[in-house]
């Protein structure tokens, strides 16, 4: 399916189709994200997050980053979401609507987010107004990604492994019942 999308990009029609895909995905992502930060139900919020994460994975596919998309599904949907749901359950969140999830004065948050959005939007518009993605785009091969990780990025990769181990040890100590 990925391959299909990118193949069709080569023609105008193909680009149209990819665009349509993208806008649908983007709309879903934005709506789900908005619902996630406004809903009164913790469980619903985590389900909305699921939708956003999937949509982001789909965006990676459109951008030809297949491996990142796969990782996104595996790590986020498979691991992080499960972790978050565990968190929801262990902290005995109500199944159903709650009233005490938000701060008062949400307008401050909204104001900050909106002005941040305005600054970002302006910068991006000024910077990349009508820059197009390259037309002859091909998917980035997983194998090339692997080569890159194990040559240029070997140091951060090894550091990351230490980081995960440390996080594991620490999280066990912190979270366990004495």
């Amino acid at each position: 399916m990925t391959y299909l999308v990118l193949q069709t990009q080569l023609t105008d029609t193909g680009e149209w189709i990819a665009n349509i895909f993208f806008y649908i995905i983007a709309a879903v992502a934005i709506v789900a994200a908005l619902r996630m930060v406004t809903t009164n139900n913790v469980v619903h919020a985590s389900l909305y997050l699921l939708v956003v994460l999937s949509a982001v994975a789909a965006t990676y596919v459109i951008l030809g980053a297949e491996f990142a998309a796969a990782t996104q599904i595996l790590v986020y949907l498979g691991a992080i979401m499960v972790l978050l749901l565990f968190g929801v359950m262990l902290t005995r969140a109500k199944i159903g609507a709650e009233t005490d999830l938000d701060h008062d004065q949400k307008w401050i948050g909204a104001l900050v987010a909106a002005s941040l959005g305005a600054v970002m939007g302006y910068s991006l518009w000024e910077g990349f107004g009508d820059v197009r993605m390259p037309a002859d785009q091909v998917p980035q091969r997983t194998e090339a990604v692997a080569d890159e990780i194990f040559s240029t990025y070997i140091v951060p990769f090894e550091a990351l492994s230490v980081l995960l181990l440390a996080a594991l040890i620490g999280a066990v100590v912190v979270a366990r019942r004495d």
């Binding site: 240029t152 990025y153 140091v155 951060p156 550091a159 990351l160 230490v162 980081l163 440390a166 996080a167 620490g170 999280a171 100590v173 912190v174």
Partner: peptide, 19 residues
């Protein structure tokens, strides 16, 4: 390198959060 700096920064910080 940005990636190395970022990972190093996280490696510095994440254990500290827990400690």
């Amino acid at each position: 390198d940005l990636v190395t700096i970022f990972i190093a920064l996280e490696l510095v910080s994440i254990p500290a959060y827990m400690m």
